[in-house]
Simulated assay, not measured.
Amino acid sequence: MNCELKKLSPDDGRDIYDMLQKLPKDENGFTNGCSGLTYEEFKKWLVKNNNMSNGIGIEEWMVPQNNYWLFIDGIPVGMGKLRHYLTDKLRKDGGHIGYSILLDYRNKGYGKILLKMLIDCAKDMKIDRLLLMVHNHNVTSIKTALANDGIIEKVDSKCHFIWIENKY
């Protein structure tokens, strides 16, 4: 099995578009901003999100964020987001990392692979602690975070707050 993580590019094409149309619009707090867009709107979305990863055109309350695609044997099967840093608001509702795997590819260990790759990207960015906020009912993602050396800091009525120490 060949696993590859690719950072969003304005040149991404139909394979990424088709994958994003299959991901839910909003599931367990992970928002797919591309859901329901036309292909032309998707191309504009790519440019906007590429700019956002560089801090260009983001609103005051936002932080730069990179988007990544997980490819398994050349097929895009998932998406991950990595915020460069957290604000006080994102420490309470958001965290550093979000990810989603296409329904047909779940329960194959790809979420664990994707999270590990996102942690490695954070390491390259010198982010030493990562917060994941996982909805309480999302047992699979809680297990995935714990399998990637996550430590549960607290649990509230909505989420598990899981920190991952990122030694670089």
Rank of each mutant, 00 (worst) to 15 (best):
M1E: 08
C3A: 12
L5A: 05
D11A: 15
D11S: 15
G13K: 07
D15M: 10
D15V: 07
Y17K: 07
Q21L: 09
Q21Y: 10
K22G: 13
K25H: 12
N28T: 10
G33E: 02
T38P: 06
Y39Q: 05
E40N: 08
F42W: 04
K43M: 06
K44Q: 15
L46I: 06
L46P: 06
V47E: 11
K48Q: 15
K48W: 15
N49T: 09
N51K: 10
N51E: 13
I56A: 04
I56Y: 05
V63C: 03
L70D: 01
F71K: 09
D73A: 03
G74W: 02
I75D: 12
P76R: 04
G80A: 01
K81F: 08
R83H: 00
R83C: 00
L86F: 02
D88F: 09
K89Q: 13
R91Q: 09
R91G: 01
G95C: 05
G98C: 05
Y99C: 08
Y99P: 08
L102W: 14
L102D: 15
L102H: 15
Y105G: 08
R106S: 11
N107H: 14
N107F: 13
N107V: 11
K108D: 11
L115Q: 01
I119M: 01
I119Q: 01
D120Y: 05
C121R: 07
A122D: 02
A122S: 04
D124W: 08
M125I: 11
R129K: 14
H135G: 13
H137Q: 14
H137C: 13
N138H: 09
T140I: 14
S141I: 06
A147W: 03
A147H: 05
A147I: 03
N148G: 06
G150D: 00
I151D: 07
I151C: 07
I151P: 10
E153I: 05
S157K: 08
K158G: 08
H160A: 07
H160N: 09
I162Q: 01
I162V: 02
W163V: 00
N166E: 03
Y168G: 12
